[in-house]
């Protein structure tokens, strides 16, 4: 444990220091008293924070703290689950996510998502995978799709590897390449926000490093909210960190939100410090 202590602190000192000052950045999404309940049982309670634009916000916390549940509330993915109720305010810019003023399909094309395990559509070619979101949204013109495909794959740093075999299927790629393909697929619809749910948890260390590097590259075009169980990862990639913890009643609550450098070096709450130092979780 003490060993891990040192590692975390080293990393946080070295890498977090450069965290951009985003205090003045525009707000991409804002959460106010957001709670999620399944069949009456609260899984996340009263979470409130702002997601700064073109920055990376990490959600950290031990298993069961509701990180993923909270993330999926942001693009209304809980709509699929019978008995799931999201309360409180979630806003994308000025738009009330749950207000009904914007169709869920449009909303989801503005808030993209990357999942734990790479999930390219197995029956589609690489090309079709990347442009699938645009096609869902009614884009048919080949020149637009071609451009978007190249752009998205370039942004996801995989264009050079796959440009000669866009007709191949996603399953021919390695796990890390597949995940970058999924990132490209999400970027192709040009979302304002990209939600990433432990995007490297199924990947090897080298692929993980490349995805983390990629996150740093794409944040200038998209706001990122990333769930991770890996504190070093949060320290390496994020500008802002939200720390969640499971309360007595097993609901996830927000303990502390702040600039990553502050959360990792000088948190306000002793529980945050304990978690960062690896005392539990």
């Amino acid at each position: 444990m003490s060993n891990q202590d040192a590692t975390v602190n080293d990393i946080s000192m070295a890498q977090v220091a450069e965290s951009a000052s985003f205090a003045n950045a525009p707000v991409a999404m804002s959460l106010r008293n957001v709670s999620v309940a399944f069949n009456g049982r609260t899984a996340v309670r009263d979470v409130s924070f702002d997601v700064p634009q073109n920055a990376v916000t990490a959600l950290i916390g031990p298993s069961g703290s509701g990180k993923t549940t909270l993330l999926r509330a942001l693009n209304r993915l809980h709509d699929l689950t019978k008995g799931a109720v999201v309360t409180g305010d979630v806003k994308l810019g000025d738009i009330d996510v749950y207000g009904g003023t914007i169709p869920t399909t449009v909303l989801r094309s503005r808030i993209g998502m990357v999942f734990q395990r790479p999930n390219p559509f197995p029956t589609m070619s690489l090309y079709d995978n990347v442009v699938s979101g645009l096609r869902f949204n009614g884009v048919k013109k080949k020149s637009i799709l071609d451009d978007a495909c190249e752009q998205a794959l370039t942004a996801a740093a995989i264009w050079d590897e796959v440009k000669d075999r866009l007709k191949a299927h996603g399953s021919t790629l390695s796990g890390g390449q597949q995940q970058r393909l999924c990132i490209a697929r999400a970027l192709a619809v040009e979302p304002e926000v990209l939600l990433m749910d432990e995007p490297t948890s199924a990947l090897d260390p080298i692929s993980t490093a490349s995805i983390e590097e990629l996150i740093g590259q794409i944040k200038n075009r998209v706001t990122i909210v990333i769930v991770t169980h890996n504190m070093q990862q949060a320290a390496r990639v994020s500008d802002q960190t939200a720390f969640l913890l499971m309360a007595e009643d097993r609901a996830g609550v927000q303990i502390e939100v702040g600039p990553t450098s502050k959360i990792f070096n000088d948190p306000d709450d002793s529980r945050t410090l304990d978690y960062i130092r690896g005392r539990f979780g």
């Binding site: 699929l80 399909t105 993209g112 699938s132 999924c182 999400a186 939600l195």
Partner: peptide
């Protein structure tokens, strides 16, 4: 289920 979610998260109906 992950494929279904991938599809929905891209804005598919």
């Amino acid at each position: 289920k992950e494929l279904i979610e991938a599809s929905l998260s891209l804005g598919a109906t």
